[in-house]
Write a protein that binds this DNA or RNA. Structure first.
Lengths: 237, 237
DNA sequence: CGATGCTTTGAATCTCGTCAAGATGTGTGG
DNA sequence: CCACACATCTTGACGAGATTCAAAGCATCG
C-alpha cells in the first residue's frame, strides 16, 4: 500500500532533503503519526512548468513538496504577476483563507509532491496536536517571509534585492553553496519576485559581476565571490 | 504583527466600535469566555506618538486596540523604516515568533488598548478552542494583508499605491467615507508604508488632485471624488 | 539548419529620489 | 497677543535608477 518509506531527517517521500528548515510539517512526529499521514497521501508527479495547483481553482488539497523546485505566483486581472516565493523540498503549500487557491504553484524543475485531501488532513491535525503546531509554525514562518519581502520591495535597490535572493537561496535551497548556486528560475521569475523587470535584473547581475561580488559561469549558475558584501547588501536587518 | 482584527459585536472593554471585520478574536465566544478574557486584561492608555510596544523589547503582552489609531513599524539597523500596517479599534497585535517584538506599535492619535499577559492569554487559548481558532483566522488574515502589500510594493506606481491606501482606509477605518477620510498619519508614515518618499507622496497626491480623482480640503483630510477610478487604481485583483 | 525562447545590451524615456527652498501650521514663551 | 521656533507639507530643479522599446546574441529542439 505504501511504496515509500517515511523518513524525516534524510531524503524521503514525506520528509525532505531540504535540511535547513526548522519549520517542517513532519517535525517531531512519531512513527505512528507519520504512518497515518502517509496513508492519506498520494504522490503527484510534475514535469517542468506544470502547475501543482492553479490560482482560483477549488482548494481541495494541501501539498508537501518531495523533490524539485517550484514557485508561488499571484496574477492580477490586468495581467501583472507577483512571484511570492520559491519553494523547495520539504516546503508545505496549499492552505488558503477561502475555498479557492489565491495563488498558483508552478514547478520550475521536474518535481514530486505528496498531496493530502483537505478533509482528511484537517482530521489529522485534530488528532495529532504536534501536526497542528507544525502547521502554525509554518504559518508564522510564511508570514515572516512575507514581511521580509515587504521590506525589500519597499526599501531596496535592484542589486540589493538580488543579493537578498542569493542569501535566501543559500539558506533554503538544498544544494546551494557560495561556490555554486543553480538558478532553476528564469530572469522573468526573478524579476516578478523582486518587483523588477527582466532587463533590470540582467543589468543588476552584470553590475554585481563587474563589481566582482559574483561570477556568472552560465546564465543559470552563479558563484558568490564576496559573500560578506553580498550578505550585507541582501540583509534585511 | 499586522492587524489582528479583534472585536466583539458590541462596544465594550474588549471589543469595540470598528465594524467591518470578519476576523474577530472574540467572535463566537460566549459570555463566560468573554468574562474570562476580561478578567486577565488591563487597560493601557496612550497619548499621541507614544509606543504601545517597542521593537526588540521583551514580548510579554498581546494587545487589543480599544480606541484610537496606531501603526506597526519595523526599523532596520541602517535606520530604514518600513510601516507594516495601520491599525484600528478592534485590531489585535503583539504576537511574535520570538520572545521579543520584531516590530514597534506607535499611537497616531490618543489611544487605549487592552493588554493581556502572554502566559495567561496562552492559557485561555488552550481552554477555549474557539479562541484558538480565532487566533488562527486572524493570522491568516494578517498574512493576506502582508501579501497584498507585497503585491502593491512589487507592482504599483506611486499614485496607485496611494489609491490602495485610500481603499484600505475606507474598508477598515471606522469613520472613513468617500466624502471624508481623515488621515491621522503623517506623509512620512504614508511614505514608509508605501515604500516611497514624502516628496513623492506629496506630488502623487497633487497629481490625483489635479486629475480630479480626489480633493484635499486640508492636508489631513481627503475626499474621494471618483471612487470608481480610485478603486480601480488601488485594486490588487 | 531554422524556429523558438531566454538572456543580454543599447538608447530613449519616465518615475522617483535627492537636495534645496519656501509655505503652512502649531505650540511656546515673552 | 505677538513673535519665534519647530515640525510638517509642498514645490522646484536636478540626477539616479528603473522601465520601455528595440535589436542582437545564444542556447535548445524539432
Amino acid at each position: 500500500m505504501m511504496p515509500y518509506k517515511l523518513i524525516t531527517q534524510a531524503t524521503g517521500p514525506l520528509g525532505s532533503s531540504s535540511s535547513r528548515s526548522e519549520y517542517a510539517l513532519f517535525k517531531s512526529l512519531n512513527e505512528d503519526e507519520l504512518q497515518q499521514l502517509t496513508e492519506v497521501s498520494k504522490l503527484k508527479v510534475l514535469s517542468q512548468k506544470q502547475h501543482l495547483l492553479t490560482q482560483s481553482s477549488s482548494a481541495t488539497h494541501v501539498f508537501n513538496i518531495a523533490s524539485g523546485i517550484a514557485l508561488i505566483e499571484r496574477i492580477s486581472m490586468n495581467g501583472r504577476r507577483q512571484v511570492l516565493a520559491f519553494i523547495f523540498p520539504g516546503d508545505f503549500v496549499g492552505l488558503t483563507q477561502s475555498d479557492r487557491y489565491e495563488y498558483g504553484v508552478k514547478a520550475l524543475t521536474d518535481a514530486t509532491a505528496y498531496a493530502f485531501r483537505k478533509p482528511e488532513f484537517r482530521g489529522l491535525t485534530e488528532t495529532i496536536p504536534q501536526l497542528k503546531k507544525n502547521i502554525a509554525d509554518i504559518g508564522a514562518n510564511v508570514l515572516g517571509h512575507a514581511l521580509d519581502q515587504v521590506f525589500i520591495l519597499g526599501q531596496k535597490k535592484a542589486e540589493e534585492r538580488l543579493c537578498f535572493l542569493f542569501v535566501q537561496l543559500l539558506e533554503r535551497m538544498p544544494e546551494a553553496t557560495a561556490e555554486s548556486i543553480q538558478l532553476p528560475m528564469t530572469r522573468q521569475d526573478i524579476a516578478d519576485y523582486l518587483g523588477l523587470t527582466v532587463e533590470t535584473v540582467s543589468r543588476a547581475l552584470a553590475k554585481l559581476k563587474s563589481d566582482k561580488l559574483i561570477a556568472i559561469p552560465t546564465p543559470q549558475k552563479i558563484t558568490i565571490i564576496d559573500l560578506d558584501k553580498v550578505s550585507e547588501l541582501g540583509d534585511i536587518e
